[in-house]
Simulated assay, not measured.
Amino acid sequence: MITQKELAKKLNISISTVSKALNNSPEIGKETIERVHALAKFYKYQPNQNAVNLKKRETKTIGVIVPNITNRFFAKVLFSIQEEASNLGYNIIICNSNESLQKEKDSLKVLSNGSVDGFIVAVSEETQLTKDYSHFEGLVNEEIPLIMFDRVLDKINCDKVIIDDADASKKAVNALIEKGREQIAFVSTIFDLNVGKLREHSYEEAIKFNFNNKKKPLILHITPEKDSQSQIRSFLENNPKIDGVISADNISGTQTLNVAISMGYKIPEAISIIGFADDAISKLSVPKLSILDQNATKMGEATVHLLMKRLKNKADEMPKSTQIIPTVLNNAGSL
């Protein structure tokens, strides 16, 4: 079935113009309206009823879909979204995809019946692995407001809020080098996600640049099939000269710190460790984990403000934007 986007492409006009012409808007000239209706009739165009419902109603409600509601980072972003939305007179409906593509699709389908005015989404792991983006493409084609945060898809043309992952990894490498570290490793449990890949790639580039390609990156991908602490222990035993570690996520940094201490390493004298995490995670070890704070609160606020801007400018051809939230390196004790 043909979409408004495809009609617009065939007629060489904007999607917004097609939408207005189909609704016989006085803003559009008679000739253009006739051309749009003629082509729509030829291709037997049928409007997406869910999208029509969503456009016609103002519910003062936002649909928020996250991949793991128990994850500390997503929980903090959710809290921030709820607080900011409430301040602006909006409610939110939260759905947990549990890293499932089908649950993500089901959540969008259920909420697209007119229950919400727009969506804020962090993409599930399965969606990224399968590269099935059809459910998001449908939203974009029907001009339903969509904001992606943290886990975003480059191929989906929507507004996005992210942290500067590349800069954060480089910042961590530079901080370790300033402490005199020469064998810097990278550990990750999110190596199959876009954010994990970006953080890892930036780490590799920073190592090559700072050491003039004389040192090889040392990388551990922690898999769920085996005990994570055992994997970290084996990695440290097989690379005894490691004196610095960067963790890509909010769990592996604390795990690495605790394993290193159990092996007799003094932290930070023997090994310095930095993790992408927050203050709460940092406090789970002694000494506290030094962190790259992802500013979950600011990210949540930014997604709401960006969605409000999009809702107020539905009729405009406002270009999609990507807002970058800076990270902050906090030396809590392990650097």
Rank of each mutant, 00 (worst) to 15 (best):
S100G: 14
S124Q: 00
S272R: 14
D249F: 07
K5I: 01
S202G: 08
P224H: 05
I242Q: 05
K170M: 04
G29C: 10
K312G: 02
N238M: 11
A172L: 11
S234D: 13
L11I: 09
L284S: 08
L218A: 10
E58P: 05
N331H: 13
V64K: 00
S86F: 13
R310T: 10
I120C: 10
L153T: 00
K314Q: 09
V195E: 00
I33G: 03
N50F: 03
A277Q: 04
S290V: 11
Q231E: 13
Q49K: 15
A75C: 13
Y133F: 05
G275M: 00
A175M: 04
D167M: 14
I242P: 04
G264F: 15
S230D: 15
N53F: 13
G244K: 09
Q294R: 11
P67M: 08
D164T: 01
T127K: 02
T32W: 03
L7R: 13
N295T: 06
R181T: 10
K241F: 07
K226R: 15
A21I: 09
N24E: 15
T17N: 14
Q49A: 14
N210T: 05
E137D: 06
K215F: 11
I273D: 09
Y203A: 04
L311V: 06
I177A: 12
K160W: 11
A277S: 07
N113T: 12
G264T: 14
V286C: 13
K283S: 15
T303Q: 01
V173K: 04
N141F: 00
L307Q: 06
N157V: 06
L7I: 06
N212C: 09
I291F: 08
L220S: 13
T327P: 03
I28C: 11
F136V: 02
T130N: 13
D164R: 01
F79M: 14
Q231W: 04
I261F: 01
Q183I: 05
